[in-house]
Design a protein around this nucleic acid. Sequence first.
DNA 1: GTCTATACGATGATAGAC
DNA 2: GTCTATCATCGTATAGAC
Lengths: 191, 191
Amino acid sequence: MAKKQTRKQLIFEEAAKLFRDKGYLATSVRELADKVGLEPSSLYSHIKSKEEILQKICFDSAQKFIDGINEIEKLNATPSEKLKALIALHITIATEDSTSVTVFNDEWRHLSQDVLKEFLVLRRDYESRFKNIIKKGIELGEFKNINPSIALYTILTSVRWLHYWYKPGRQLSPTDIEKDICTLLIKGLKE
Amino acid sequence: MAKKQTRKQLIFEEAAKLFRDKGYLATSVRELADKVGLEPSSLYSHIKSKEEILQKICFDSAQKFIDGINEIEKLNATPSEKLKALIALHITIATEDSTSVTVFNDEWRHLSQDVLKEFLVLRRDYESRFKNIIKKGIELGEFKNINPSIALYTILTSVRWLHYWYKPGRQLSPTDIEKDICTLLIKGLKE
DNA sequence: GTCTATACGATGATAGAC
DNA sequence: GTCTATCATCGTATAGAC
């Protein structure tokens, strides 16, 4: 049932790759049409607009992070364990679906006003929940007393290069990467 | 002598802000002209092209990082101390000149082919020198034995959110931020 | 240096035949 | 659903008068 790739799916996939490689604005509808083997106008039988594609990518990715943090919050676990799970979540999403995540990370600002607003609400909410876990850890004395926002953003962005470096064929598996990044962020680089 | 702001300087400054806020491609020459109070065509008495501005921003920023690492490599210091100095360098540049750094970070890919190539050579060289300091630290047993590339990119990107969060008026000074980020990356979040 | 006027290509998107 | 034809708009940049 989910075996056959519809043309619509193909369009979204090729668009994601182009958006990732060149950026949303630098990707033309003509170029996308070319990639999927259609005339530009034919695309519009499948999509409403170029922005519709960006919207889907951004909100689908956002949903993955939200689903992840929903599960993690439910865990009966310490803040340390939750933080580890969050880092793992980011690494999993970044390695399993690197194309979408790149677009989600870098191109969201080209969403049109109303949609952008909606997107930023989701993001702010996610960040706030992530930060609460850090705060709780500090409160309980599990974490060092550093500024929670600084910790949050440092951790959030410190996995944002993965999509650009990680290639499925590499010697390092996502698990290896996760181990090193967790070590670095939680125990520090210093021996 | 450097007191008077020339119109050319004003153009570059306003362009940097627009590129930062909207992205290079989303910024039109018409809009830039409007910001500096000129007709679009008049800009071309001061600049050769829109891309010339992007080039200047990217290469000027690159030079700051290169100057910084030049000095740090000369220090008679341990890898730990050099790493701290490198993190401080990134934070200083990101807080003192956040506009340019944002553009440098996010918009370099819109440089045209030849210039882009040149830029990537500089970046690769910088990253390689940064990585060597990490490798040396691992070799000497000062740092944990984690993958040097992972450490490099985690550290590099972990200061890349600053320009978006840091406002000169904040309660936290660049020194405070530097302290927390260094603690997090070097000693880890865990107490 | 600044202006008005404009070239001219690329853009996202639509109309309507098949 | 796909095509050809086309639109309106906007992009960077230039020409030439003042």
